[in-house]
Amino acid sequence: MCGRFIITDSAPDLAAMFDVEHEGENLPEPSWNVKPTEQIPIVLESMKSDPAVRRLESARWSLVPTFSPELNAAFATFNARAETVADKPTFRTALAKTRAIIPATGYYEWHTEGTTKTPYFVHSDDGLPLALAGLYSWWRNPALGNEDPARWVLTATILTGPAQGALAGIHDRMPVVLPEEWWDQWLNPHIPGDQELVDGALEASTEAAAGLAFYRVAPITGNAPELLEPVGPEVEVGYTA
């Protein structure tokens, strides 16, 4: 799963990395401890124009489908399981038409043994941001009038799949990390999203997952660069002990 992540790259850097044509307003500041329902930067391609315009926008991390009567769901929607996302009413419309990339400097994962949970920081071995496969949805607040700009809320979720390689020794799930050659295909709103597309993204993520490293960190509290300081040796890519 992916319940906390880090994004420290600036909006201009993300825009350059993902060939963004439009930067939205009120993009969130860097964070070393992003939590569900907080604002996150996402990359999407707007369906309102042809050709589509690639945008960097701020979204609430927890997808709310268009049919939901309220913003706060009864169950967690900050992650979507890649194996079943095409069948779930909460996510299948977004998969079909509104897919996103969620940039991340890395993410935290907890290894559980008995009652002990040990946090790890997972990141790319080259220091570049990860491109996590995601979905987005615009939720309309029925309590606000048509003239209120706050009536539309952009929300997003991160896809997860089975953990690969050495990461399986920490947790059985991990985010779907898209290689660069998959970015255009994943974001293109004119390509229908279905389980076949997700399965292809999962297969393609194997290469990106092989380039991840991780190390143990102290308990995750607060929000500061010190959260990334290792408390043990970094695990080499391919380490399986």
Rank of each mutant, 00 (worst) to 15 (best):
L63V: 11
N72I: 15
I6A: 06
F78W: 15
P162G: 09
G232Q: 09
P192C: 06
Q164C: 06
I170D: 03
A241D: 10
R140V: 10
Q185M: 10
T115G: 01
T77W: 07
A133Q: 07
V198P: 00
A52N: 05
D172Q: 07
L14R: 07
L130Y: 02
L154C: 07
W152E: 08
H123M: 10
V64Y: 00
V85I: 15
F91G: 00
F91H: 00
P51W: 12
A168W: 11
F121P: 00
Y120Q: 02
V20T: 01
E203V: 13
A241Q: 14
R99D: 01
W32Y: 15
E180R: 14
G106V: 03
N26Y: 10
P119N: 06
D13R: 15
K117D: 09
V237D: 00
M47W: 13
P89T: 03
V153R: 06
F67R: 06
W183F: 05
A218E: 14
G193F: 04
A168Y: 08
L154S: 00
D199T: 14
P175W: 14
A209H: 07
H190G: 12
F91N: 01
A156I: 09
P233T: 04
G127L: 05
L44P: 00
R54E: 06
S205D: 03
Y239Q: 13
G169S: 07
T66K: 08
A82G: 10
D172P: 02
T77P: 06
Y215C: 06
R151W: 09
A204S: 13
G127K: 12
K97N: 08
